[in-house]
């Protein structure tokens, strides 16, 4: 079992970690390229940048925004995120591992704080899952990964807390450690390919929405054509789009 743990902390960790970092960079770059292309394609090129920056900053700290509607959810969510980011990065044991493997390290947080943050993450993670599962609207909006993620994210925290705080036998300890290492690797592996990619896409999300929800003139026709219909099916109300481009084309046809 020790060999498996070492494999998880060595080559497998490198694989997952590099994949996470490069995958996040990749998705960031791809999003930006896609945005630039969409902007070039759009006839309406106006982007309200100032408004978007304000919105982005507001959603980074959503307590105030959520306070009026869902204060409990806002608080829980922020607590969950804070613990989730701080504990893995600044736990003394993790920092020491970086120091030993790559030769450089950064500051670490005190043990007590780490323990409290861990408990907070575990509790809030489970609460978030229950909130999603218990609400009808939440269930309607959720995909499979939305249920899986809060639980999966909590697993390494639970096992990590057990490993560092309770006196368990060596066999149980190794088992816990193995679950800890492998679940963390699995999380890193999946981050850039699932919704957790929002960790790097947050600054872009508002921008993407603003830019890409502008359909080019005649987009509906293209959709209908792509779906294989010769003309608009009866269940589709033909949109009356009179965009500047369409008008211009019409004028040209009339002129001829």
């Amino acid at each position: 079992m020790q060999a498996w743990i070492e494999f998880g902390q060595g080559p497998l960790f490198r694989l997952c970690f590099v994949l996470m970092i490069l995958g996040l960079i990749r998705i960031f770059i791809l999003t930006i390229i896609g945005m630039v292309e969409a902007l070039n394609r759009n006839t309406d090129k106006i982007v309200p940048y100032r408004d978007l920056i304000q919105k982005t900053l507001m959603w980074l700290f959503p307590i105030k925004h959520l306070w009026t509607k869902r204060p409990f959810y806002g608080l829980i969510s922020v607590l969950f995120h804070v613990g989730l980011l701080i504990v893995p990065l600044f736990l003394a044991a993790h920092v020491l591992m970086w120091k030993n493997s790559v030769g450089f390290a950064w500051f670490s947080i005190p043990r007590g704080l780490a323990d409290w943050l861990t408990i907070i993450v575990i509790v809030t993670g489970i609460v978030l899952f229950l909130m999603r599962a218990s609400s009808k609207a939440g269930r309607a909006l959720s995909r499979k990964q939305d249920y899986i993620w809060p639980l999966l994210l909590v697993v390494p925290f639970i096992t990590g807390y057990i490993c560092s705080n309770s006196a368990i036998g060596p066999a149980a300890y190794q088992l816990m450690m193995m679950v800890h290492v492998y679940s963390a690797n699995l999380i890193m592996l999946m981050i850039p390919f699932t919704k957790i990619a929002h960790c790097i896409l947050v600054p872009l999300s508002q921008l993407v929405t603003a830019i890409s929800w502008k359909f080019p003139a005649g987009a509906g026709d293209m959709v209908i054509e792509t779906l294989g219909y010769k003309e608009y099916p009866t269940w589709v109300k033909k949109p009356r789009l009179e965009t500047p481009v369409e008008l211009k084309v019409k004028e040209e046809i009339n002129a001829e």
Partner: peptide, 15 residues
């Protein structure tokens, strides 16, 4: 890009 990052990650793991 997927091919690139997968290869890079495997490369790091194999070092």
């Amino acid at each position: 890009s997927l091919a690139f990052i997968l290869a890079a990650a495997v490369g790091f793991a194999l070092l």
